[in-house]
Design a protein around this nucleic acid. Structure first.
Lengths: 154, 154
DNA sequence: ATCAAAATCACCCAAAAGTATGAGCTAAAA
DNA sequence: TTTTAGCTCATACTTTTGGGTGATTTTGAT
């Protein structure tokens, strides 16, 4: 922004200076050469031409480049897991149940999970039973398979 | 391209026309109003100003937009599974054992697998036991987890 | 033909997993 | 405040799984 305004001001000065210089040049030419009786129309034409060029130059200098952004899609190999929360609410899985499910998927036994979560084995059994109900499966291996397909687990 | 050249030609015509019109206008003003004794310098200034504007307009019209290619990263869910045969030979898993492992991963019980493969439950038990040995795990869930990490299973 | 690995199956036992039912406790919602 | 959902735990029972051992048959390679 700051640069843009400075550039604009500089251009105005340059423009004025150019105009003055050109007038001087023409006056000088008027004396020096045989161009003395050039008609007003020719002067005007030259002026117009030169200042058109100046205008073009100015525009190019000042104008922000018109840019067209072309998006090039780059495929990124990604094994990123995006957790599907909608599935979770749809199935009505509680936080704890999901937790148990995740540990299950890591191959932990119910006993392991119980110790990991500082609860009794029976508690884990209850949780896993509920998980099976909600996932509509009978075994933990099925539960894990299902959960992965539902993006509940990496 | 074709359009660009046409635009250029049109601009040239327009330019000439504008110049002629302006000169006419000035002559007319010279007769009509009190502007008769305007100095040449003022005429020149006006001309210069107007044609500078024209130049700017021209440049903006003609200028080719700069195209910028922006790489956009697109995450592609890649479920390409490449079976790692080296792991299989390294672990010494037989075809049948791998087969059992795969069905295990689908959540089938030993009984299910036995029926699927038309063998007895005991046979599946021995197979799975061998699988566990070779994968160095204790439970089927661990085996599945391990096998997935070793690219033996999708 | 012979040998080794693989596949098949059986029996037994123990551990783990799963089912069913009931109950207490807490925090959040109606 | 009452209710509800979630978490906890227990007991009892069944099913599944896993470990160990041993045996027979198939199959592929030397």
């Amino acid at each position: 922004m700051t640069f843009s305004f400075w550039a604009k001001n500089r251009s105005v000065l340059l423009y004025s200076a150019s105009l003055a210089a050109l007038l001087f040049l023409m006056k000088w030419l008027e004396w020096r050469f045989i161009i003395i009786d050039y008609s007003f129309e020719l002067y005007a034409g030259a002026l117009a031409f030169i200042f058109t060029l100046l205008g073009v130059w100015l525009a190019i200098k000042i104008a922000r480049p018109k840019t067209i952004v072309v998006e090039k899609q780059v495929l990124i190999k990604t094994n990123d897991f995006v957790f599907d929360e909608s599935q979770l609410t749809r199935l009505g899985l509680s936080k704890r149940e999901l937790e148990v499910l995740q540990l299950m998927a890591e191959g932990l036994s119910n006993q392991d999970i119980a110790e990991r979560l500082f609860v009794s084995l029976n508690t884990i059994k209850t949780h896993s039973s509920k998980v099976f109900e909600k996932l509509e499966v009978q075994r933990r291996t099925q539960a894990v398979d299902r959960a992965k397909k539902l993006n509940l687990i990496p």
